[in-house]
């Protein structure tokens, strides 16, 4: 069973409980869901177009060759940068990270890549700005970059 099926089952379960408890409140909930959909889906469309552009016009080998050259502290930073620009689904992050490691990337740069690929995305930036505002977005992203760098140092220090 995949994750989207689980999500759908959980959501329908709660929806049914809600319907049993109060029809009126459930209608309100669905109306609110529609508002959120209207707010988010167009932003997603825009983001996915950007994602498509990068996927089509920037080959994956570009990422690998960049990371292979990075060593030590620089490798962590290059790994983080790659993660931010890599537009791959979370489920594809680990296979790709494994590929990076077998092609010579250090563990520090691999963790840098994995974490920022999941947590930071140039394409999700418009959505984050739209939902949380500039100050939150800037701080959240900078703090994440810093924390992931610390992780990179630890992963480089520990023999895996």
């Amino acid at each position: 069973m995949n994750i989207s099926t689980i999500y759908l089952i959980v959501a329908s379960g709660f929806l049914i409980i809600s319907l049993i408890k109060s029809r009126e409140k459930t209608a309100k909930a669905l109306l609110h869901a529609l508002r959120v959909a209207l707010l988010v889906l167009p932003v997603l469309l825009f983001v996915f177009v950007l994602m498509g552009l990068l996927q089509v016009f920037v080959p994956k080998e570009v990422f690998t060759s960049l990371l292979g050259s990075g060593h030590g502290v620089l490798g962590i930073i290059v790994g983080e940068l790659l993660g931010m620009f890599a537009l791959i689904e979370p489920a594809a992050v680990f296979p790709f990270a494994g590929f990076l490691h077998t092609s010579g990337a250090t563990w520090g740069s691999v963790i840098g890549f994995v974490m920022t690929a999941i947590l930071i995305g140039i394409v999700t930036l418009p959505l984050e700005l739209n939902q949380f505002g500039t100050r939150f977005t800037v701080v959240r992203n900078l703090v994440t970059i810093g924390l992931v760098f610390v992780m990179g140092l630890l992963f480089s220090a520990v023999a895996l």
Partner: peptide, 29 residues
């Protein structure tokens, strides 16, 4: 190619995002 990628990505996230929208609505109420 971009059109294909957009369509595929939307298809991948649509059911999960649909579930999340419902959960958000329920949380709100």
């Amino acid at each position: 190619e971009v059109t294909k990628t957009v369509a595929k990505t939307f298809k991948d996230v649509l059911s999960i995002i649909f579930a999340i929208f419902i959960l958000i609505g329920l949380i709100q109420v």
